[in-house]
Design a protein around this nucleic acid. Structure first.
Lengths: 264, 264
DNA sequence: TCCTGTCAAGAGCGGTGCTCTCATTCATGG
DNA sequence: CCATGAATGAGAGCACCGCTCTTGACAGGA
């Protein structure tokens, strides 16, 4: 028997299905209305949408506990009272489920950063940067496995599809906004950048306001790297026996980074 | 004959065993003399030491191809012409084999950095820093999976034993040396550091020369984070469609970092 | 020569992702 | 209103995985 965890009682597939359906229905009443552009019309389509969300939710719960490598379709199916092969009706493969989780993680981080940044005065560039930095670290500490999913070593054998690049750039777009405002303010000291480096920046150039100077762009990339690196090293435990009070250290580092960016 | 492989099994088994034994012997002749404190006396002990090294070598080859999560004891055993359970005579578990690979990776990176740094004039602090930075990136690009093993997201369920902290600090010790020399030179501008941050640095304080000032220590940590972060983001593919010429960008960033460290 | 400890092999357990078949359920078109 | 075809879940099965336990062959020391 390949599914040893299903009902030992005879001929109760329908009963198990019933209880699973009931649970599904209960979750549906509390579930948020899905903001799909076209609302599902038939009951079948509604059930499908709900079950899909439930699979994702259960998978995310497993991810948070066991990490990406420990995410098991069978375990998710077991939690939902169904059989592993049924999951494949909703996600063609484990990787597709993972893709969905990655997109959700990017969006959750992006949303947290956006909300924190929106609370700052537009003219307070330093405040906006520190708000993003704070929000990122707090989200990462609250969801370390999801952080590792998007900024940690990639899952072996998994290749990120194009769908992820949109949500992925949501957070960095905030930083680009700060850089643009900073440049618009006009009082930024500029160092020249070698032509070879300028050429190396060509891809990112095409994605940001063209008047942001090279030197500022490099400093922004370095600041972003420092942010990602500090959070990742903390989450990976590399600061054990190095830094006692990470919040203090992180605040200080991000403050210095703001200074390097000449955010005031 | 010292080979315990005279198995009266079907032809394919003994054939595979024979080739494996031959390969083992060849590896022994080219293998470096193990710097074990007590050389293996009996043939049995010698065979055990050689087979252990061969397991590690095969495992590292698999690691380089498939990543840590894809490292399979069964596949390693298959390559060596033995059965999976036999591996457990040499490593109590997969995690212990992984620990060995982690230690080796730290040592390999440390050695590469040490050699590169040793080639620089002692007074050329900037050159020493850039040499380390270069060696680290080159080693990482040549051994991306091993880099991810030590600086990427930790393998889930795996807890690093104490044996790893020694080799892990090998590379950072070089950086600490530069900071100490820089401070000894005396012409470093110092910003004050808040007392709370000073307290946060207590653990690392106890591991470095006591006269290195707090501000310099923070800058060193930030520089190290920038290095790890830049390399990791590159290896994880996060600079795709962002930076076209990574060597140019990396050189520039490390140069700016050297400037922040006031290495000249 | 016998004894003892080491070794590889093999079977087996519980787990994984994934595929295929089959029966059922359900929306819909005639 | 009912038949048809698509959607769906269950179940069996394949080839893997880490790990455990037992068994028989072997080497080295007494």
């Amino acid at each position: 028997m390949s599914e040893p965890h299903t009902h030992p009682a005879p001929a109760h597939g329908s009963a198990a299905q019933g209880s699973a359906a009931a649970h599904r229905g209960a979750a549906a009443t509390t579930g948020a209305p899905t903001e799909r552009p076209s609302a599902p019309r038939t009951a079948r389509e509604r059930a499908r949408a709900e079950l899909t969300e439930e699979i994702v939710g259960t998978a995310r719960r497993h991810l948070d506990v066991d990490g990406a490598a420990g995410l098991s379709l069978r375990a998710v199916a077991r939690d939902l009272g169904m059989v592993s092969s049924a999951i494949y009706r909703y996600f063609p493969s484990r990787d597709d489920l993972l893709t969905r989780l990655i997109i959700d993680a990017y969006n959750a981080l992006g949303e947290a950063a956006e909300e924190a940044e929106a609370e700052q005065r537009r003219t307070d560039l330093r405040g906006r940067w520190l708000a993003i930095a704070h929000a990122a670290r707090e989200w990462a500490l609250a969801n370390p496995q999801q952080w590792s999913l998007i900024y940690g070593s990639p899952v072996p054998g998994y290749v990120a599809p194009q769908d992820t690049i949109g949500p992925a750039s949501r957070t960095t777009a905030l930083l680009v906004g700060i850089l643009a405002d900073l440049h618009a303010r006009g009082d930024v000291e500029q160092r020249s950048v070698p032509r070879s480096v300028r050429a190396a920046l060509a891809p990112v150039r095409s994605a940001i306001p063209p008047d942001v100077p090279d030197d500022l762009l490099v400093r922004g990339l370095m600041a972003w790297t420092e942010l990602i690196g500090t959070i990742s090293l903390e989450i990976n435990g590399q600061f054990h026996n190095v830094i006692a009070d990470m919040p203090e250290y992180y605040d200080h580092v991000m403050d210095r980074t703001a200074h390097v960016l000449e955010l005031g």
